[in-house]
Design a protein around this nucleic acid. Structure first.
Lengths: 220, 220
DNA sequence: TTAATAGTGTCTCTAAGACATTATGTG
DNA sequence: CACATAATGTCTTAGAGACACTATTAA
């Protein structure tokens, strides 16, 4: 029995970066049809012989198309249907990646562009829905996890950490409350070194206590 | 160009029900190979001609295989890889459904079985991972949304609502605090009628203010 | 010294938790 | 009436928010 179906299976990746204080998305100019020449999310086909699973596909596609190895790559959602791709009934398993700005600047290649998510050009396929879903996921998890910290380099100051939460949640947070929360949840630990250079008291550097995502204590 | 790939695309559904006070999963005895005769999640192939998208596939498969039309059906995760299905490299887009016990009893058909999630038999494929992911999703959302209420019939008492949260979260909640929370979030509204029959004061009946999932106010 | 941000302390207010009290039905 | 659960109130405590105050650097 032949189980092959007429479904196009792809992986697309929403690469989120904080660039110049704005939440931005990584886009590539498409070299081929459909939508040749348009900016779109990096994506590609699954290579069953090469990829153990779709997470491997996502990491490979991101690496091959942008040169980036992301410290945070999570499955977002699978988008599907008859009309989202002009080639036919398609299924795109989408991932989102959070990357420090420094990583993008160090390893970006070719036709790669960072565009602020607000004010981005309309994207082909249903890529706008994908970007919106990625932002919503990031926002949602930001209230109860260390997720936004993955937009920062490995060490950071508490002011930088607060700032990234503020940008992601699009709100101002109180410095004292934020620090008390961070302290209570034990999500960061100080490292040797301070950030100096400005005309004020230097700031202690920290890193995440756990290298992977941690969720805050929650109760109903 | 032929975009067909050697990937088996299926949809599987984790049907969660509160049955006799225990969180349970709906299983079907498989009529065909692989794993013929074993209890497994309801699942099926995508029918591109018939299904607008995978959500439609999920609803159709659930209806055809169990007779159930679920009031809550949400995409869970896509599981993939070379080894999870003996037929080859496969991709299963999984959904989870929450259904009131009454709906299952009214419309179940054939070889359908409800099994408590604790103490279920080992499931074929990677269906145990899928069930675990569904429970984890339900638990996670229970702390900040009305999700557990979809395990109840349309009208319910506050004691029943509290009980379903307690079963899902596997914890005891304080009656007074729970009611204050429910009141503050405005997630339910009273309907005409009370639940009587026991030797004590009758309980007011309520329903969800919004027919769809609502999330509680959260802050970092 | 001044300006700027780092870092901490204090007060208030909201809400969760523990637990008591009143309300209202059935047997 | 007895008794069970519904429904509400009270007190305590934890934490968020607002904001003041001290600390430490570069210019």
């Amino acid at each position: 029995m032949d189980y092959r179906q007429d479904i196009i299976v792809t992986v697309d990746i929403a690469l989120l970066v904080l660039s110049e204080g704005r939440l931005s998305i990584g886009l590539l100019r498409r070299p081929n049809e459909p939508f040749s020449g348009r900016l779109a999310l990096p994506g590609g086909f699954v290579h069953p012989e090469e990829d153990d699973d779709l997470a491997a596909t996502a990491a490979r596609v991101l690496r091959e198309k942008t040169g980036i190895v992301s410290p945070y790559l999570e499955q977002l959602f699978s988008f599907s249907g008859a009309v989202r791709d002009p080639r036919g009934w398609s299924l795109s398993v989408c991932y989102y990646a959070l990357v420090p700005g420094e990583v993008v600047e160090a390893s970006s290649i070719g036709e790669f562009e960072l565009v602020p998510v607000d004010g981005r050009p309309p994207l082909p396929f249903d890529h706008d829905r994908i970007v919106d879903a990625a932002i919503e996921r990031l926002r949602g998890k930001a209230t109860y996890s260390t997720l936004p910290a993955f937009l920062l380099p490995e060490t950071f100051t508490l002011a930088e950490l607060q700032s990234v939460y503020e940008h992601v949640l699009d709100t101002k947070l109180d410095k004292s409350s934020f620090r008390k929360k961070v302290e209570a949840q034990g999500i960061v630990e100080p490292v040797k070194g301070v950030r100096r250079g400005a005309a004020h008291r230097p700031a202690q550097l920290y890193r995440l206590s756990a290298s992977r995502l941690t969720e805050f204590d929650r109760r109903i």
